[in-house]
């Protein structure tokens, strides 16, 4: 069985400038792979390549064994994406947004089912009926997760999802992600947040200037080792 997410010699260059250099990684169902790195390290480029928002210069991004560049629409059926700012339609309620995006993903739910999806990520029925214009960032992120759940995605791509969330909202979000992983979802998350990554990640990849320098797993990820390693790489 192929890994749900896989980068094989994935490279992206704009002219002479290489922004992602020969990335190789695999994320299996149930794993949370955190890409750590400073701005410009290549994290968002990696996400964009999996989404086929940009095409690779060399190598392949694969989802469920399918090459994304060759099957841009098909591969998205397994994928859900949560950007740093989940942007929804402000004039519509959370429920209506979920209904709309689910329909576009080919899933049709009753109102009760939609409310259940939202409740499963911690959004009350009262909040679900309110227009998104009144939502906090954390509430919008929850709707984003609900969309991923309703879509029945097998892989989740997250780009700095906890950036700007208050500690409680970030904590709730982390718990949600962990729950999704235990249910079999493969998660690839770009983040600056070292401690959040250590808390929920099964794998942590350190990126700098387009390169994946190292990947830590399990016992390697003690707080002290991780902090030291991260600082060392960033310093160098």
């Amino acid at each position: 069985m192929p890994p749900m997410l896989e980068a094989v010699h994935l490279t992206k260059a704009y002219g002479e400038r290489i922004v992602l250099d020969d990335l190789n990684l695999q994320v299996a169902p149930g794993e949370i792979f955190c890409l750590l790195g400073a701005n410009g390290a290549g994290k968002t480029t990696t996400i964009n390549l999996f989404l086929n928002f940009i095409t690779p210069t060399r190598g392949e991004a694969r989802i469920n064994g399918y090459v994304v560049a060759e099957h841009p629409i098909e591969t998205k059926q397994w994928l859900a994406y949560i950007p740093e700012q989940v942007m929804l339609y402000r004039n519509f309620t959370g429920l209506e947004n979920l209904d709309y995006f689910s329909e576009l993903a080919g899933k049709h739910y009753t109102r009760r089912e939609l409310l259940d999806w939202l409740a499963s990520v911690g959004l009350s029925a009262e909040a679900a009926e309110r227009r998104v214009a009144t939502y906090s960032k954390g509430m919008r992120q929850k709707v984003g997760i609900a969309i991923a759940l309703a879509k029945e995605a097998k892989a989740l791509l997250l780009d700095e999802p906890t950036s700007g969330l208050d500690p409680q909202a970030a904590n709730e979000f982390s718990q949600l992600l962990t729950r999704l992983a235990t249910q079999g979802m493969a998660v690839l998350m770009a983040t600056h947040d070292l401690f959040r990554a250590r808390e929920i990640g099964t794998h942590i990849g350190i990126m700098r200037q387009g390169k994946l320098l190292t990947t830590l797993t399990g016992a390697d990820m003690t707080p002290q080792a991780l902090e030291q390693l991260y600082l060392d790489y960033m310093r160098n």
Binding site: L51, F53, P72, I73, E74, K76, Q77, L79, A80, Y81, P83, Q85, V86, M87, L88, Y89, F101, L104, A105, K151, L157
Partner: peptide, 14 residues
């Protein structure tokens, strides 16, 4: 500009 286009395209909307 609002960011929903990325979201729509990520869903596989052509």
């Amino acid at each position: 500009e609002h960011g929903t286009l990325r979201y729509l395209l990520s869903l596989g909307v052509r």
